[in-house]
Design a protein around this nucleic acid. Structure first.
Lengths: 338, 338
DNA sequence: CTGAAAGCGCTTACAG
DNA sequence: CTGAAAGCGCTTACAG
C-alpha cells in the first residue's frame, strides 16, 4: 500500500503539503501542485478512506433503510427497487457510497440508529423503513441528515408522488368512462405512511366533484399490499357490493389480487368490472386484461431525493415535502359503459 | 461522541484494556471484563469503524459489482436482485456491510479495482459485472478475495445454477411431451459468461440421447437478454423454421419476446408452439399462456456465495465451481402433441 | 491479568 | 507558499 508519505519522500515535500495538493486546498504554487499530482498518478496512490474518515469525520457513506416488509419482494419492489438504483448512481457521482442499514446487523438486535452510528454514515435515506414511528423519530433526532421517500416524519423532508392528484385522476377517468359505482381497494397505513390514504382522498374528492356519494361500503382496506391481501380484500368488497362496476386499487399487486378473485368467480374483465391500479408493475402489461395504472417517476423522485439529502449533508438543512406527479398509463382494464 | 477513553476514565482502566474487553481477546479477568462491558452498555459506547479499520486493516465491507447492463433492469433483475437481497442479510449477520463498486465513482472513469482500493473492501462479490475479461482478471489479481455468481474467471470461485442439467431436463421434458422439432433461442455469451451456452449444451445432449439430430438451423442466438432481442431472435428462428413445435429459451424475457412474436403472427400458443423459459420471472405466471420455466434457488445460491466469500476472507482461500440445481416449474406453455 | 508505548494514514490549525 | 506538531479513535506487540 502506498501512502502520502511515499509521495512526500519521492517529491521532497512533507505530508501536509501532499495532502493539500491532493485536496486542492491550501495555497500551493501551481508548480508544486502539478509536480505532486504527477507522482500521485505515477505511483497510483489511493487515499485511505479510513484514515480520512478518522480525521475529517466524514465517511462519504449514505445509509439506506430498505427492508420491504410490506411487499416482501426485496429489491424487486416495483417502486423502491428502481428508485434505489437511480439514487445509487446519483450519489455515487457525488462521491458517496450506499450502505444498507439493518436492525439485525451482526445478528444483534440493533436499531437503525445504532447501525448508522457504528458506520458513521453522513446521511440517511429512509426508502421503505420497517419501523415504528418512535424508531423513525429517533432517526430524525440523531443528528444525521435524513430524507424520506415514503414516510412523513417530523423534521425530515419527504419526496413522494402526488398520490392524491393521481387518485383524483384515476377516479375522474373512471367517471368519464361512465362508471358511477366505483369502489376503492386500499392498503394498510401507519401514522407515517400515507400512500393509500392519499390515493383514497383523491378518489373521494373526484366522487364529490362529480356529485357522487362517497359510499363507505364501497371502500375496503386490505391487510397488506401483497396479492393475497388484495384477493381477500377483493372478496370482502365484491361480496358486499354486487353493484360495483369499477374499482380503483391502491397498488397493482392488490389489483392482481382483485383480478384473481374475478377470474375465480367468473366475473368477466373488463366487461363486468373495470380496474385501475398503481405502480405500473412489470406484470401490469402482461396480465389479462392489461392493467391501467400509474407510473411513478422514479428518475425524478430519485433526483429530488438525492439533491435534498446532499444539500442537507452540505449543511443546507431544509424540511419540506416535495410532490412528483405520477403518470396514468391507459391499458385495457377499464371499459366504457353506456 | 463517546470513545474508548471515556470508558477508561469511568472504569479506571486504560484504553488497551477496554479494547480487550470489548473484543474478547487478551486474558482479562471475568470481573474487570464484566465491569467494563457494563459501562460500555451504560454509556452506549459505539466503536468507531474508521479508527478500527485504520488499525486492523479490516473494513468489514464487501464490494458488490452489479450493473445489470445486459438486462437493464437494475435491482429488479429476476435472478440477481433476489440473490443480492439474500446475500445482503447473510453477510450482515456476519458483521459485514455491502458497498456497490462502480466504474464511474465520483464521476471519474475508475475501474472496479480502484473503487475497491479506495474503500478498502474486505471481499468482492461479482454478481453481474459489466466488464471485459481483462478487467475481471485484474480483480482476481488485486489480492482481495472474490467470488462470482455468473462469470468464470481464473482464480475465482463461481457459484452458479446447474445450467446444463436444467437445459437437459427442459429438452427431455419437451421430448416426453411428443416434440421432435425443438428449437433453442439463446442469449449472447462472453468469454466469462456461460449461462446460455451451458443451457444449450444440455439441450443438445438431451436431443442426442433421444437420437434426435442437433439441427443448427434450429438454434438462434439473440443479441441480448431483453424482450426486444428475444422478439427479433424469435422472428429469425421462426421464419427460418416453419416446422418447429417447441422452443427452449435461454431465459424468460427472451421467451416473452417469442410469445409476443407469436401473438403478432397469429401463432396460437401453446397449440402451435410449446415454450420453456428460464428464471421464473414474476411475469411468467401472469402471461398467457403461463410459462413453464426454471426457478433458480436464490437462497442456496446466496448462502453458498456468502459462505465461500466469508471463508476466503478468513484466509481459507479455495477456488472451485459450485453448482446448484434449478427447479422446473411446469405451467401451461407446453402442449402434449400426438 | 493490566499498562506504557507506538502506530495505522490522514488532516487541521498554527507558524514562519 | 511550505512545514512541525498534534490529533482523530482504535489495536498491537511487548513489558511487567
Amino acid at each position: 500500500m502506498i501512502t502520502i508519505y511515499d509521495i512526500a519522500k519521492k517529491t521532497g515535500y512533507t505530508a501536509p503539503t501532499i495532502s493539500k495538493a491532493i485536496n486542492g486546498n491550501g495555497g500551493l504554487s501551481q508548480k508544486t501542485r502539478a509536480r505532486i499530482l504527477k507522482v500521485v498518478e505515477d505511483l497510483e496512490y489511493k487515499p485511505n478512506m479510513a484514515a480520512r474518515a478518522l480525521t475529517t469525520r466524514k465517511t462519504h457513506l449514505i445509509g439506506v433503510i430498505f427492508e420491504d416488509s410490506n411487499m416482501g419482494r426485496g429489491f424487486e419492489h416495483p417502486l423502491f427497487g428502481g428508485l434505489l438504483n437511480a439514487f445509487r448512481y446519483l450519489v455515487e457521482d457525488a462521491g458517496y457510497d450506499i450502505l444498507f442499514l439493518s436492525k439485525h446487523f451482526q445478528q444483534k438486535n440493533n436499531s437503525y440508529v445504532e447501525h448508522s452510528q457504528y458506520r458513521d454514515v453522513d446521511g440517511i435515506l429512509l426508502l421503505n423503513p420497517d419501523a415504528s414511528s418512535l424508531e423513525l423519530s429517533k432517526l430524525a433526532e440523531c443528528g444525521i441528515p435524513c430524507v424520506s421517500t415514503n414516510d412523513f416524519i417530523p423534521g425530515i423532508s419527504t419526496i413522494v408522488s402526488a398520490n392524491k392528484e393521481a387518485g383524483f385522476q384515476a377516479t375522474e377517468y373512471l367517471i368519464s368512462m361512465g362508471h358511477r359505482n366505483i369502489g376503492f381497494l386500499g392498503a394498510p397505513f401507519t401514522s407515517t405512511s400515507r400512500a393509500s390514504v392519499e390515493r383514497r382522498q383523491g378518489y373521494e374528492e373526484a366522487l364529490k366533484k362529480a356529485n357522487l356519494n362517497v359510499n363507505s361500503s364501497y371502500i375496503e382496506v386490505c391487510t397488506g399490499w401483497q396479492i393475497e391481501a388484495g384477493f381477500e380484500g377483493a372478496k370482502r368488497l365484491c361480496e358486499r357490493n354486487k353493484d360495483l362496476t369499477a374499482v380503483f386499487c391502491a397498488n397493482d399487486t392488490i389489483a392482481f389480487g382483485l383480478i384473481l378473485y374475478c377470474n375465480q368467480n367468473n366475473i368477466p374483465l373488463p366487461d363486468k368490472l373495470s380496474i385501475v391500479g398503481f405502480d405500473d408493475d412489470r406484470v401490469a402489461s402482461y396480465i389479462t386484461p392489461s392493467l391501467t395504472t400509474f407510473r411513478q417517476n422514479k428518475q425524478i423522485l430519485a433526483k429530488m431525493t438525492a439533491d435534498v439529502l446532499l444539500q442537507s449533508i452540505a449543511g443546507n438543512q431544509i424540511t419540506e415535502t416535495i410532490r412528483v406527479p405520477a403518470e396514468m398509463i391507459i391499458r385495457d382494464s377499464v371499459k366504457k359503459i353506456i
